[in-house]
Design a protein around this nucleic acid. Structure first.
Length: 280
DNA sequence: ATACGCCCCTGGTGGC
DNA sequence: TGCCACCAGGGGCGTA
């Protein structure tokens, strides 16, 4: 579900409301998420002040005074719901963890499919957490360069689409934004990664940056489960050029008569979308 | 080392 | 209306 832009949006929403607040109360409703939630999580966070937020790949890290960070992952169907003090809305189904601050803000972690997770990690060693340790570069930071991506793609015969989904190569892309970035870079998703020439890799880096940047500015993409922490929708789904648009005319082929339109096919068990005329 | 299928889990949708 | 197959923003694990 949420890819980098959605996770970034959720993280910013949490930071805006929760930074500086003290957690007064925590209730773990069920611990059998993708990884078992630590049994002492509620005890550890209770009484702690929230002092920082950051995102790494599709993970949110919420740093607490006292030296621990809460690590969140939303999986496919996870949501964070922030409710202001005094709200009395009924609790949504599949709410697995609730935090309440001293000021009365409620933080709910909702995840029907339970592919998400919540964990604790020492703040001083966040990057050593087993789920973070092997992650590749952040695509919006300086370390993600054409030279570095080219080195990761070299000699790989797998399709570029599946290589870009590998979080060790670049961190934070998922099925939607890979499709959109490959379209913008005019690269066919089945192209063997190691065969892409220098110029193509450079276009790809630029396309990934642009796509993610625009999606963050739009608050992410809302289709099924994803909403922002205070219920607003993202609207980048209206800017999709190929994802979910099989059969539609390719938006960038001038003179649609010679363009058969967007096609869908399956790679590694997941849908890929592309324009056969524009992407090679 | 790399690549692929399978699995985790629930809910929505469309066809019969 | 009911049932069923299929699909979905992720990712880890076991096997070739």
């Amino acid at each position: 579900m949420p890819e980098l832009p959605e996770v970034e949006t959720v993280m910013r929403g949490m930071a805006g409301r929760l930074l500086g607040q003290v957690i007064a109360h925590a209730e773990l409703r069920r611990a059998d998420l993708r990884r078992a939630v630590p049994p002492d999580l509620a005890r550890v966070v209770t009484g702690a002040r929230v002092i920082g937020f950051r995102r790494r790949a599709k993970y949110i890290l919420m740093r607490l005074a006292g030296g621990q960070s809460v690590l969140w992952h939303l999986g496919m169907s996870g949501r964070i719901v922030l409710s202001p003090p005094g709200t009395n809305a009924p609790e949504p189904a599949h709410c697995h963890l609730v935090l309440v601050t001293e000021a009365g803000w409620r933080v709910g972690f909702i995840d029907p499919r339970r592919f998400g997770l919540v964990d604790l990690v020492p703040s001083a060693a966040e990057e050593a957490h087993p789920l973070l340790a092997g992650l590749g570069p952040e695509p919006l930071e300086d370390g993600f360069t054409p030279a570095r991506l080219a080195a990761s793609l070299a000699l790989r015969r797998s399709p570029i689409k599946t290589v870009l989904l590998d979080q060790r190569v670049v961190a934070g892309l998922g099925n939607i934004y890979v499709a959109e970035a490959l379209f913008r870079a005019r690269l066919h998703p089945a192209r063997p990664a190691g065969e892409i020439p220098r110029g193509g890799v450079a276009r790809l880096v630029a396309a990934i940056r642009e796509t993610l940047g625009e999606a963050i500015a739009a608050g992410g993409s809302s289709l099924r489960d994803y909403v922002r922490p205070e219920g607003e929708l993202g609207y980048f789904q209206h800017a999709w050029r190929v994802y979910g648009r099989a059969g539609a005319p390719c938006p960038d082929c001038p003179g649609a008569a010679r363009c058969a339109g967007v096609r869908r096919f399956v790679q590694a068990g997941r849908s890929s979308f592309y324009c056969p005329r524009r992407q090679r």
